[in-house]
């Protein structure tokens, strides 16, 4: 069925469970432990930056790497710029998707 996936069958399900644990444990941590535990200040500071760093590290190659090489101008970069502008100006949850995809398709049409 999923011949193309490197993880399949039991390995895939175990991986889902492991990712699920890595998701629920951070959320449940202090709610379950209660006020008995406290985070050292340095760790708290480091944790604050982890999500932004991780999100950017996941997203940036999707935008700026094309065909195995870094690019500065491409339909994806243009679409990402449109998403940034829309997010900074409006709160609407649908608009970033509409603007981003429309820009991506529009630039592809124009450039092809």
């Amino acid at each position: 069925m999923d011949a193309g996936l490197p993880y399949a069958g039991a390995a895939l399900w175990l991986l889902f469970i492991a990712i699920g644990v890595a998701t629920t444990v951070p959320r449940a941590s202090f709610i379950v432990l209660g006020s008995r535990a406290a985070l050292p200040a340095v760790v708290q500071r480091a944790l604050r930056y982890a999500p932004a760093a991780a999100l950017a590290a996941v997203v940036a190659p999707d935008i700026f790497v094309s065909g195995g090489a870094p690019v500065i101008l491409s339909p994806r970069v243009g679409a990402a710029a449109a998403v940034v502008i829309v997010c900074l100006r409006w709160q609407n949850p649908w608009l970033p998707f509409i603007a981003g995809m429309a820009t991506l398709w529009g630039l592809r049409l124009v450039l092809s």
């Binding site: 990712i19 998701t23 959320r27 604050r48 760093a53």
Partner: peptide
């Protein structure tokens, strides 16, 4: 994969600590 999942979820340790009480 797990390190990435953890990093993406770490902000919730802080939320969890804040709301626990």
């Amino acid at each position: 994969i797990l390190a990435t999942a953890l990093a993406l979820n770490l902000r919730f340790v802080i939320f969890s600590a804040a709301i626990a009480r």
